Computed example of a mutant assay.
Amino acid sequence: MQLPTWAAIMATIAGLAGIATLISNLGKIFSAVSSLLSWLTGRLKDKDAAQGLPKRTIVAVQQSQINALWWHLGRMGDRPMVQVVGDFNTTNVWTDNVRLTGAILRYRHWGFRSHTVRGDASVKDLRSAYSGNYPIPPNEMTRVRVGFHYLLKHRTPGKRFRADLAIIDQFGNHHWIRGLVFRHTDAMFD
């Protein structure tokens, strides 16, 4: 039996809508599975941690200025490169000096595919105007700037993009700050 033309068109549209719904739900499913795996690996890692080492040594809060979180596009030779920078007020909550060894930036591409980039952390010395690999004394707060440089392998981020960031201490602890919004330098006041 042959369907009338309008019925065939409606059936095609319904089929396409079903496929679109399935694809959008796959992103949510992948995100949930990724979150579950991250949570499980975090729990297993805590059990393997050496006794006597602290699990939490710092607390970092985004600085309040408008340009505390930014990104810009540059070039490395003929290839496009992204620079991402964040400024944080960071307090040592442990009983001894803490040194920061780096940072991790994690963002999503296409809604469910996660990308991770390693970067540097630069600590402002409390006794001078310089920044570098300085310790943060107990119960003291200082400015920390994290920076990431990576080759652009897919589309350029929008004027704003959301990412999670971890500052890593000398013990390998990842201190996560989630849901940060980085703005392009040209869109700082948009």
Rank of each mutant, 00 (worst) to 15 (best):
M1D: 10
M1W: 12
Q2P: 03
P4K: 10
W6V: 10
A8L: 07
A8M: 08
A8K: 12
M10F: 13
M10P: 02
M10T: 05
I13A: 13
L16G: 10
L16Q: 06
G18E: 02
G18W: 00
T21E: 08
L22W: 15
L22E: 04
S24N: 09
N25A: 15
I29R: 15
S35N: 13
L36A: 14
L37T: 11
L37F: 13
S38C: 09
L40R: 08
T41D: 11
T41G: 06
R43Y: 07
K47S: 06
D48F: 11
D48Q: 14
A50M: 14
G52E: 03
L53N: 09
P54H: 03
P54Q: 06
T57M: 05
V59H: 05
A60K: 01
Q63G: 12
S64M: 12
S64P: 00
I66D: 13
A68T: 07
W70E: 12
W71R: 03
H72V: 14
L73Y: 02
G74K: 03
R75Y: 10
R75Q: 12
R75K: 13
M76F: 11
D78E: 11
P80H: 02
V82A: 06
Q83I: 12
V84A: 10
F88W: 02
T91G: 00
V93D: 04
W94Y: 12
T95I: 14
D96C: 08
V98A: 02
V98C: 01
R99A: 06
L100G: 01
A103H: 00
Y107D: 02
W110K: 13
W110Y: 15
F112T: 05
S114Y: 15
S114N: 09
H115P: 04
T116S: 15
V117L: 10
V117Y: 06
R118M: 13
G119V: 03
D120H: 11
D120K: 14
D120Q: 15
S122M: 11
V123G: 01
D125R: 07
L126S: 07
S128K: 08
A129D: 14
S131I: 05
I136W: 02
I136Q: 03
T142S: 03
T142V: 02
R143F: 06
R145D: 01
G147L: 07
F148W: 08
F148Q: 02
L152N: 04
K153V: 15
K153L: 15
H154Y: 14
H154T: 15
P157T: 05
G158Y: 01
K159A: 14
R160T: 07
A163C: 08
A163Y: 00
A163P: 01
D164A: 00
A166V: 00
I167R: 01
I168K: 09
D169N: 03
Q170L: 05
Q170D: 05
Q170W: 01
F171E: 02
G172S: 04
R178F: 09
R178H: 09
R178G: 04
V181S: 09
F182K: 02
F182N: 00
R183I: 08
R183Q: 11
H184N: 13
A187R: 09
D190W: 05
D190R: 12
